[in-house]
Each structure stands twice: as C-alpha cells, then as structure tokens.
Design a protein around this nucleic acid. Structure first.
Lengths: 195, 195
DNA sequence: GGGTTATCTTTACATCGTCAAGATTGTCGC
DNA sequence: GCGACAATCTTGACGATGTAAAGATAACCC
C-alpha cells in the first residue's frame, strides 16, 4: 500500500512502483490498469512514474520483463525437484509454465495476451527470448526440432491460458494430486517421438 | 466508416454499431477500445450506443457472443470440406479454430483473453457453451472423455493463441501448404488413443 | 557552501465512459 | 388523420484517466 515517506525524494521509487504496479495489475487486470492508481498505491504524485518509466507503456514493459524472469524461475523450481533426465526436466518446465499462469494470471496475460507492453524494447525482448531459448534447448535435449518445440509450447501454453482463465473445469476441479497426474499426461502427449 | 443518414433515427443502429465496434476492435485492440470512437465510426452521437447496449461492456458482450457464432462457422467451413469420418472432422474443427484466431486476432482475444465482456450474460454464455459442446461431442465421437477434450482443446487453443500473437515463427513462416500439414500433425498429437 | 542536476509535485488539457435532460421521430388508439 | 405515448437519438455535464510543462525540493559535486 501507500508507503510512508518522510523525505521529498522517495529513495527507491522505481522498485516501489514496480511492486505497486503488480498489485494494481492483480487487482484491476491489464485492461483496467491505471497509472494514477499505481502512483497512489506507492504514495506518490500521479506524475512521479513518468520520470522512471516514461509512460504507462514503459512501466508495463518493465513489469512484463520482470514477469519473464519469474516465469523462468517458476520453471526452475519444478525442475530442481524433478528427475534430471531430459524428458522429466521438460515435463517439469511445462508444469512450471502452468504454475506461473495460475499463480499470476494477470501478469501472465500481460506477457502473452496484451499489446500494452512494448515487445520491441531490448530488455523485454531479451527476457522473452531467454524463456523461449530455455524451451528450445530442453526440446533439443530430447531430440526434437523446432516443430517439436512448437508442439510442446502450444500444449503447455494452451493448458496454462485456459486454466488461468477458469476454463477446463474438468481439470480445474480435480484434487491437487490427480490434477498433477493429468497435467503430466497431457503435457507428455506433445513430446517428440510419439507421432 | 461514418454512414450517412438523412433521418434523425438511424433505422438499424444496433447492427451498425456492432459492425463499427468490430472495426474499432480490429484497429485499436481490446485494450484501447473506445466507445466514443465506435459512435464516431457509425456517424452517431457518443451517447447513442447506450440505448442499445447499456454501456461499453454491453457492446463488447454482444460482440463476443457474435464472435462465438462466427467461431463455430469457421469450424463448420473446414468440416464441410473434410472427410466425414469423426477423426477427420475433429481435425478440421481444430484447423477452423486456428483459422479464426489468425483471421480475427482482436476478436479472438476479446473472447478468450479479456475481462471486458460479461461472460455471465445469458446470450454470451450460451454462445460460448455451444462452442464447447461442439468440441465435446466431436471428441466423444472418437471415443474420448472430458480429459481427452481438454487435451484437444489445449493444443488447438495453444496453437491459435500463439500464432495469432505472432509467435511460433517456425510455423508461421512456413508456406501455406506445408503449414497446414504441420498443423494437422500437431493437432492430431493431442487426439485420444495415442497415450 | 553554492551551483547543477536528478527527483518529485502542481497545474493544465484532451479524451474517455456514463448519466440526466432535451429533441426528434415512429407507433398506435381512436 | 391526429394526438398522446414510447422509442430513439443528441446535448451537456461530471469525474477519472494519461501525458506534458513548469515549479519545488533535495541530493550531489566541486
């Protein structure tokens, strides 16, 4: 919320605005996202963000870039607990993909279903590309080409997007453990070497 | 564009607004969609839409409902040209799913990646449900259960969403015929009876 | 310590969505 | 055919938003 601040200068406004922006995104969604509301959350004037991010698009671009880092982190968390065999690692990454979408649906939508961030921005572009490289490398480890990567990506993304939007109720309403098993089965259908 | 109109009353404003709204959606995207701009396109005052749709959400809800009808129509077009065998029909529906997303990316995003329409609205809900029923029935025809339906849906949706957002460049840049073949291959990976 | 610059605030403006009140036209009873 | 009524559209107003410009404050550097 509105952080108290004795000094005229904030000290770490940039980071505080990013935090506030994510809260705002989570609360209002990408479409109703308000820059002035973010400023209010950070306890700062409505024009303060401009100095650090230029405009609303700049702030959302930075937030999306940070999102891609956390996206990879969510996959890494799953990978660390999984069997080190390449196929198991790929499955784990897919589960991390879905985890991220369900835990942070608004951020996920900002990254994959919005025109508001500037995807030509070097920082965001590099972050998004790193995520794709990770997928491509993992698919290569199990002997797949670019089409195989598309297969795995599409399945993971479809599950993530639909689940985070509350569809696929048949899967969504399953108890935790059963849902994991079903997701693993679905993800692995898209793996190479099954055609 | 701004339709000329001699009379005070428009005659068919409702339909004209829906047309204008789709143009506006295509031109500006869901996130920058402006109700006043729609009114301008239809050559009518900024408050005219209110009488027919209540508010902006009402207009977008009606547009999304219409979108789901066209969505099914896109699938039907593919099905009509395909082999009548159930599996071939399911493949055709998947191709229609992708066709629709690539031909009308903004409408697709309104239907599957936006909070702006009111999905509790009976008309929209029925239209969306009809689309799901179609999928479920087709999957049942080839002997699949609800999890199988989720599999097919997720793959088709993942391909559609990613392609309509300009990702999966490896597939997007393929020549037309080759792309169709690849898509068929990917879609059929998700079919039941291949686990 | 004084000038320079980065940081933040204030003020202003165009645009937006929505509401209320007024203007215009179609409809329907007679 | 005409007059009341209802439906349709316009006008004007309000608060909220994003952005730009100018002013205030504090950090930094010599």
């Amino acid at each position: 919320m509105a952080e108290d601040r004795r000094t005229y200068h904030h000290g770490d406004l940039r980071a505080a605005l990013l935090r506030a922006a994510e809260e705002e995104l989570q609360a209002s969604g990408v479409e109703a996202f308000s820059l002035r509301q973010v400023a209010r959350r950070a306890g700062v004037s409505h024009a303060a963000p401009a100095h650090h991010f230029g405009d609303a698009r700049g702030l959302l671009t930075a937030l999306a870039a940070e999102g891609f880092h956390r996206f990879l982190a969510a996959q890494s968390r799953r990978e660390a607990r999984a069997d080190p065999a390449p196929a198991a690692q790929l499955t784990a990454a897919g589960l991390g993909y879905v985890d991220f979408a369900m835990e942070r649906p608004a951020l996920f939508r900002l990254m994959f279903g919005s025109d508001r961030p500037d995807f030509a921005d070097p920082v965001l572009n590099e972050a998004a590309t790193a995520a794709y490289r990770h997928l491509r490398d993992q698919v290569a480890e199990v002997g797949g080409d670019e089409v195989a990567a598309a297969s795995v990506w599409a399945m993971a993304h479809g599950l993530a997007d639909l689940l985070s939007n509350g569809r696929l109720r048949a899967i969504l309403t399953l108890p935790e453990a059963a849902r994991q098993d079903v997701l693993v089965g679905l993800l692995e259908r898209a793996f190479p070497g099954r055609g």
